[in-house]
Amino acid sequence: MHIAEGYLPPVQAAAWFAVSAPFVVHGSRALVRQVRQDPETKLLLGAAGAFTFVLSALKIPSVTGSCSHPTGTGLGAVLFRPPVMSVLGGIVLLFQAVLLAHGGLSTLGANVFSMAVVGPWVAYGLYALIRRAGGGLDVAVFAAAALGDLATYCVTSAQLALAFPDPSTGFAGALAKFGGIFAVTQLPLAVSEGLLSVLVIRLLTRTSGDDLRRLGVLSRPTDEVRA
């Protein structure tokens, strides 16, 4: 669930565009380079985008009595690095803003920053950390996808708190309020996204071992046996 159309003051909306733009530009270059260097992974790239497409269309009920949807950007960040996901996530957000009145064009910069920049980077950072510490592929992918998802909505809450501080308690009060709406709702959904990402990576180790090896995802002999 993203910041709705028109619900950020113009100056802040513009500022988030300015923050996100370099990530998307850099990401577009990374995407072109990826396709040129390794055309074989084009199909897998499409699959990573499709995963984000499906997950962000699924509005799932949560323990807070409201609904939200996962983002699906963590898996792609693990496979193709975060810059590529800045582009794919941005495309999904644009689609939803233009056709579904979900999110918005004026808030696209802010939403790209939370879902297509911070989410993928948190996911990839955690993944790299866990792998370097000797963690298994499934554990690393689960943590990456779940916490990348959660991080996205923590950023959304902070962005709204910044724009609409509580009249009496200020930024902190507003952060707690929007956090209650977005981040708490997202907890079970983040777990779901983690589980679904693990499912997809398990299937991928079966069908696309060569691609994963070239991308550096399957780097140890134990990864293969596990699958």
């Binding site: 669930m1 910041i3 709705a4 159309e5 028109g6 409201s66 609904c67 999110g103 309020k177 709406i181």
Partner: peptide
């Protein structure tokens, strides 16, 4: 309800003077 709709509601409640300046 969607969490984005709830956030919109929270903004309208606390900042009744805020006018969304851009429509889908």
């Amino acid at each position: 309800a969607g969490s984005d709709a709830l956030a919109e509601q929270a903004i309208v409640d606390d900042h009744p003077d805020y006018e969304p300046w851009f429509a889908p």
